[in-house]
């Protein structure tokens, strides 16, 4: 029997063709809980993500230069005096509360609360509607934190007074 024999398909001899559907349906329906090989399925996706992130960094780095002000001068305090943006929420709190609260208790409670979270929330539910308390609490803190960060970063000017960022820009990266 040669390779051109119509009864040979991909090197195998066809013994018969049965009309109709395969018993399991045309095609296996993929289940989300199925296990798939990391190589290549996850690896190609990670490669795409890595290249995208690096491209983004490259574009930003070409377009915008990192800031460099005058040389440090301990005798000339700038106004406003701003912490890096990721501490802007703490600095905003510092303008309303005693430093003991804003500088020690709040950050301590945040880190401690985050560490304790999986030991406090012992429910096994994953859907948001079954874990309303956890989702609502976390979302509240997240929103408050983002708002405080934005205020401290962009809405505060000289003497930590309120400014509109489109009038006066005091955000520093």
């Amino acid at each position: 029997m040669s390779d051109l024999d119509p009864r040979v398909v991909q090197g195998r001899r066809v013994l018969g063709v049965v009309p109709g559907q395969p018993p399991g349906g045309d095609r296996k329906v993929p289940d989300e809980q199925d296990l798939v090989m990391v190589s290549p399925h996850l690896l190609v996706r990670h490669a795409v993500v890595a290249l995208t992130v690096l491209l983004l960094v490259l574009i930003v780095a070409v377009l915008f230069d990192a800031p460099l002000r005058e040389v440090a001068n301990p005798f000339e305090t700038p106004n406003p005096e701003k912490a890096p943006w990721y501490f802007a929420a703490l600095q905003e709190l510092l303008s309303h509360f005693h430093p003991m609260v804003a500088g020690v208790l709040v950050p301590g409670a945040i880190v401690g609360g985050l560490i304790a979270l999986p030991y406090i929330d012992r429910s096994r539910a994953l859907q948001p509607r079954l874990r309303k308390v956890a989702v609502a609490t976390f979302t509240t803190f997240l929103v408050v934190w983002v708002v405080l960060t934005l205020i401290g970063f962009a809405f505060r000017g000289p003497n930590w007074g309120w400014v509109w960022p489109w009038n006066e820009w005091h955000g520093e990266l």
Binding site: E70, A72, P74, P84, G103, V104
Partner: peptide, 29 residues
């Protein structure tokens, strides 16, 4: 890491951001 790196350029931005950021350490009990 980000905060420690922020000081290294030793410009006004770096110097005073770190001065503010570390001023709270005084109040650690």
């Amino acid at each position: 890491l980000s905060f420690t790196g922020y000081l290294l350029p030793w410009d006004q931005l770096a110097y005073w951001a770190v001065t503010v950021g570390t001023s709270m350490a005084d109040f650690v009990p």
